[in-house]
């Protein structure tokens, strides 16, 4: 286990470094002068000397690698610089947006896990029954609906026609109001990703249930419940968990669209707005945060998988050997 943790941790750190170098280079290569983004069109009307002074103050005249090293240095000290658009501390802006996003992600993840685990198990145990077909059809439909359109349709029904749920913003007064604002975004985010989770669980359950060791237990007269809890679920949990880790990026990507539609003041919407406004420091901080969350998240999930299943430990350590 020790060696496993070290190997995975070094991979994680390598990925993080590579990722933020990539982000930084790519964002700096973008057209659209950051100085213009910061000071608006009037920057272009300034004298040559003034323009140069501002560019130097922002550190934009230095070669890109030294800009990166400087930036990395200050980031490690918790300083992400100032937003080009509002002049505010980036860390303040990000801190403000993180809360709502965490809330949305938690609510959506909870929905995803509860619904997909129960439906996935049901579907996997009763393969080829009417209920399995209904669940399968349902998951395919939800995989195919564009997230943003689904959000709009729910809005049409619940905000416009029934008028029972607010169509935008985050609640201010009281728990009930707050929940009302959360229901639609979280449901859309959850349902638009749920199909894959159900399919994974169902298919792996269907594969495992026909294995000899399960049959052996049946023959010995173990109850279905005992087999399910003690033997089937632990076997299925590894692929399911690693999918949860992998698809975290997808859910975060989905939250960009959903936060924009429901005017949810979170990280996704912030990133979208900053990308459109060429606000580099904010985009970099948001991307770095996303990247670290995803990478560390999948690291943690791998640890859990390795703890559950010794084969996972071996497969990562001997990846090079066995794959040849």
């Amino acid at each position: 286990m020790g060696r496993f943790i070290v190997t995975r941790l070094s991979e994680t750190i390598a990925t993080l470094l590579l990722g933020n170098i990539l982000c930084f280079t790519f964002l700096r290569l973008l057209p659209g002068d950051p100085a213009v983004a910061m000071y608006g069109e009037q920057f272009l009307r300034l004298s040559e000397a003034d323009q140069q002074r501002i560019t130097e103050n922002l550190g934009l005249h230095e070669p890109i690698y030294s800009q990166y090293m400087k930036w990395l240095g200050s980031v490690l000290h918790g300083d992400f610089g100032h937003s080009y658009r509002t002049g505010e501390q980036v860390s303040t802006i990000i801190a403000r947006a993180v809360g709502p996003t965490i809330l949305l992600m938690l609510a959506a993840t909870l929905l995803i896990l509860v619904i997909s685990i129960s439906l996935g198990i049901l579907s996997g145990l009763k393969r080829h029954s009417a209920i399995d077909h209904a669940i399968t059809l349902g998951s395919f439909v939800f995989m195919s609906i564009p997230t943003f359109w689904f959000a709009i349709m729910l809005m049409l029904v619940f905000s416009v026609h029934l008028g029972i749920l607010p169509s935008s913003g985050i609640g201010k007064g009281g728990l009930l109001d707050w929940l009302k604002h959360l229901v639609m975004p979280a449901t859309v985010l959850a349902l638009s990703h749920i199909g894959y989770y159900i399919r994974i669980l169902r298919n792996h359950l269907a594969l495992t249930i026909n294995k000899d060791f399960i049959w052996a237990m049946r023959v010995r007269g173990l109850s279905t419940a005992a087999i399910l809890w003690r033997h089937l679920l632990p076997n299925v949990s590894v692929p399911f968990l690693s999918y949860v880790g992998m698809s975290f990026t997808l859910t975060l990507g989905g939250s960009v669209v959903i936060e924009s539609i429901f005017s949810w003041p979170g990280l996704g919407r912030l990133t979208l707005d900053s990308a459109i406004g060429h606000d580099y420091p904010v985009i970099m901080a948001a991307l770095l945060l996303t990247l670290s969350t995803v990478v560390f998240g999948s690291f943690l999930i791998d640890l859990v998988c390795a703890w559950i299943d010794p084969r996972v430990r071996k497969s990562i350590l001997h990846k090079e050997v066995t794959s040849r």
Partner: peptide, 12 residues
């Protein structure tokens, strides 16, 4: 590199 690219939401 693939792992890294996969960790960034493609829409962004």
């Amino acid at each position: 590199v693939v792992d890294t690219l996969l960790s960034l939401p493609s829409i962004i």
